[in-house]
Design a protein around this nucleic acid. Structure first.
Ligand SMILES: [Mn+2]
Ligand SMILES: [Mn+2]
Ligand SMILES: [Zn+2]
Ligand SMILES: [Zn+2]
Lengths: 143, 143
DNA sequence: TCCCTAAATTGTATTTATTACAAACATGGT
DNA sequence: ACCATGTTTGTAATAAATACAATTTAGGGA
């Protein structure tokens, strides 16, 4: 569970300088599974980096997205959210609580992949299939 | 193809007063298949209603969404988009051009519905399945 | 058809998330 | 250790959306 060296490696591979801010942002994003907003990340990362500027959060996240280290996700509300998981996956989402959780399902992916290999869509070339499963969490604690 | 009486009926059924602004917004939204933003709607509807206020666009769309006459859709960019089609359907989306088109596929819906009837997700009750098919349009004119 | 009232529209002022910018600072290669 | 370049910070600016109060309009009842 040594996460910091892992992060340092990621940053290095992406050609980015290692800064306390970047390490802390990535670490926090990997820890929080809630797909946090920039604001939520700012609150959390500030605990570690006292002088932190909100701008740095935005800059850092933009840079991470650019380099493919992080993905943006949207919900029905008007704020961008961020996801440290870059591998293909889907989301469970409850519009009422605005809660979002990851959903991995290789069997489903296989079915969808097969389906769209067979079924061609006229004038459109599918490169990725994202599912948003809307519904309610039988709330077993908010994460 | 008499669309206005149809719109008037929709508005009446929703318990809303018939105003030129509302009729024009709905008409424009039904005509444009592009899932326009409030701003794009404002530009288009202004042609018909000269004194139109942007606020009216926002108010009207909010009201329509409240009453279920219209749905909000999101893309990867930071603007809300609107959809006059309220029946269940999916979207084809190209992140590069930010172009979005509707995708109806009952066969696919059947497959997904069957799959999630069998496969229970622990702690989550699925009520709707939305697919966003990412990819590129072999652009046959931007609609 | 006219009145009246509730509902809708408008213009303006705010809010809120995000972005732009330039100065200060820190990283990492030499 | 030094320097150049990339990064962070604080502040100012944007842009979408919302709040609000004054004005206007729709449409049901007289
Ligand atoms: Mn915004
Ligand atoms: Mn916004
Ligand atoms: Zn995720
Ligand atoms: Zn649609």
């Amino acid at each position: 569970m040594k996460i910091v060296p892992e992060i340092i490696q990621k940053l290095t591979e992406a050609g980015l300088k290692i800064t306390p801010q970047r390490v802390a942002v990535m670490q926090t994003l990997m820890k929080l599974k809630s797909h946090p907003t920039a604001e939520e990340l700012y609150a959390e990362v500030s605990k570690t980096i006292p002088g932190l500027s909100p701008t740095t959060i935005y800059n850092t996240l933009d840079t991470f997205v650019d380099r493919g280290l992080v993905k943006r996700v949207k919900t029905d509300l008007d704020r961008m959210r961020y996801d440290a998981i870059t591998e293909h996956h889907h989301h469970l989402y409850c519009a009422i609580s605005d809660r979002m959780e990851d959903y991995f399902d290789p069997e489903l992916d296989r079915i969808l992949s097969d389906y769209f290999t067979r079924k061609k869509i006229n004038g459109f070339n599918v490169t990725d299939i994202r599912l948003q499963l809307m519904g309610d969490f039988e709330n077993k604690a908010k994460q």
